[in-house]
Design a protein around this nucleic acid. Structure first.
Lengths: 349, 349
DNA sequence: CTGAAAGCGCTTACAG
DNA sequence: CTGAAAGCGCTTACAG
């Protein structure tokens, strides 16, 4: 039977410290630290290693992250900052990052409202956690200025921002070119574009790449034919509803959206409004989310290699955190167009 | 012009400490701490408050999270653990949590592979961060045992696990009942069920609630007509492809999926296999993800109030972290069926 | 109202 | 190979 005091005691002092382990093993806390961190080579006797290991498992000791971080000056946390973490696209990126980071680092996601970047204050609070490294998805220059990077940072999908940090980019221009060609081949001459409200570089590139290629293919995108909304199905649907009458009158026959999520909104609203797709209006997006294959109609999209993006970025960051130099600080991954029914009634379903 | 040493200096000693602020303001670090934490009431003179504030903004001082956490014994981090964070459903939950938590706490997401829960070791490492509170989505009992909750915890969508911690649950049974009734009314008698491989309580409830209600409505779900896959469109599509021939032969005319994501997979594969929906096979899911309104056909689903879930859970946790008692430790939110074209060709689109 | 001091739990030169 | 000690940056009784 445990006495009341004993219970109280066990509740109160739940946390097992290195000192407790040291006492039990009959060594100093320095030795406990060495063993717990696997730095025993030539520094701790076999005998003491065994003693400490036993004590650790008997007591269930876990190195306290806070104390350790303070002493080392850095934690084992890797923070992934991105304005669009809840995008299904990111699920794959995250899976890739986790795989390449392995078990030595803990990945934590910093969340903001959809499409928003953390404010200066938020960034500072993040840095106050002393992360071992930072992964920043689809940033803008302003955010990177604020960051004033202390420690290893790798950017994901940050075209034109290579000066700030090593990055892994997507060659969205290639896919955008294919898309423009595809639409031109189908006879489209007046096209509208649905952009994101965030000043994110990747969206600027998607837009510019598409506009350039469109022009080269004889497609015209009028200045009033570019609208901007948050990355949200509903917001996009509403924006399209407001814009469509004028577009229709101007002879717009296709809409390109900077993300598939935007495209779903257009798709949804077009259905409500009774617009024939793709007959009356062709729709395409970027990302090739998993849902794009099953939407109604299925969505033509520029496929971006999400898993590779995460894998490569995580790998680069890991190298940096381990103190290595990057042989190739800038990496670029390919994109390509996937044609489906929203632009081509005869596309392979 | 800065000398080389000055630059070196500024690079090396980037971090501003309370001691530096104290020196500049001509006070002690204790006073700096009091001011930085807003605990000045009756403890610091107006004069010193102003001095310290000036020094803080001149130097750009930010309280170090690690040092602060170690001294206080707790950090300002709230960790959200969930096996399915990349599910679009969670985007809304997260938005709700953020709103209710406010700016005093930093929300970090713990990520695992889709549908997986963190291992015991991972949990310990999370706890070693000394989070101010923990939000655990759709957990199983095993995981909660491991947690051995130190500090405030609130569970989300954890039916039957109320004994472990305060929780906010969804009345999925209600929606499941509506779904069973809806299918029965449409004449379905043999129905299959696509479950999740995770032993998560919410999925057990969804399944049991549906099976019970189905039985009550004269619908039969044969033992071979329940399959399980990860929460992934592709995995679900493959599992359905393997199961469909036997189901078809057994006269199955409807499939209910434990998540809309599973349902998208079935939808996708059914299209490939040339199965008519809903004529030959009706399909329904749970969650009512934003994409379900635009899928092909649009997907009948049990709507779950994601934003409210996050709001309520965040609110409860906040109360706990502030040391209050919860008036109502158990909350339940309603669910309801949204009928679309995947079960009813004449549904309002 | 103020500051010196102890302490949070750990890691790392350092001396032996 | 080992341990005493300093130090990471902060907060909080405590004495004044």
């Amino acid at each position: 039977m445990e006495s009341a005091e004993q219970v109280q005691q066990s509740v109160r002092s739940r946390r097992i410290t290195a000192a407790m382990v040291a006492a039990r093993a009959g060594v100093s806390t320095a030795t406990v630290s060495l063993v717990a961190n696997g730095k025993t080579a030539g520094r701790v006797s076999e005998d003491n290693i065994a003693r400490v290991r036993d004590a650790i498992s008997e007591l269930g000791y876990v190195v306290d992250g806070i104390g350790s971080s303070l002493a080392k000056g850095v934690s084992s946390i890797v923070i992934l900052v991105s304005p669009d973490i809840s995008n299904p696209f990111f699920a794959k990126v995250i899976a890739g990052v986790r795989e390449s980071l392995g078990a030595d680092y803990q990945l934590l996601l910093s969340v903001t409202d959809a499409g928003e970047f953390p404010q200066a204050g938020d960034v500072r609070k993040l840095m106050a956690l002393r992360p071992a490294g930072l992964l920043v998805g689809a940033p803008n220059a302003e955010f990177l200025e604020e960051l004033s990077a202390a420690g290893p940072v790798v950017l994901l999908d940050a075209p034109g921002l290579e000066a700030y940090a090593p990055s892994v980019n997507l060659d969205v221009a290639h896919g955008a070119g294919e898309l423009a060609g595809h639409l031109a081949d189908a006879g489209h001459r007046q096209v509208a574009y649905v952009d994101s409200v965030t000043g994110t570089a990747t969206f600027a590139i998607r837009r510019e790449a598409f506009l350039d290629e469109a022009a080269a293919h004889g497609i015209s995108v009028g200045p009033g034919h570019i609208i901007r909304t948050t990355i949200d199905v509903g917001a996009s649907a509403a924006a399209f509803a407001a814009a469509w009458p004028a577009w229709q009158q101007a002879g717009v026959t296709a809409v390109v959206c900077c993300t598939d999520t935007h495209a779903y909104g257009v798709l949804q609203e077009a259905r409500v409004a009774g617009v024939q797709i793709p007959g009356q209006l062709a729709i395409a997006g970027f990302d090739d989310l998993p849902y794009s294959a099953t939407s109604n109609p299925s969505l033509t999209s520029v496929h971006l290699p999400a898993t590779s993006l995460g894998l490569k970025a995580g790998g680069q960051l890991r190298r940096l955190m381990e103190g290595h130099q990057l042989e190739q600080p800038q990496l670029t991954l390919e994109s390509s167009l996937v044609v489906r029914n929203s632009t081509s009634a005869t596309a392979p379903s």
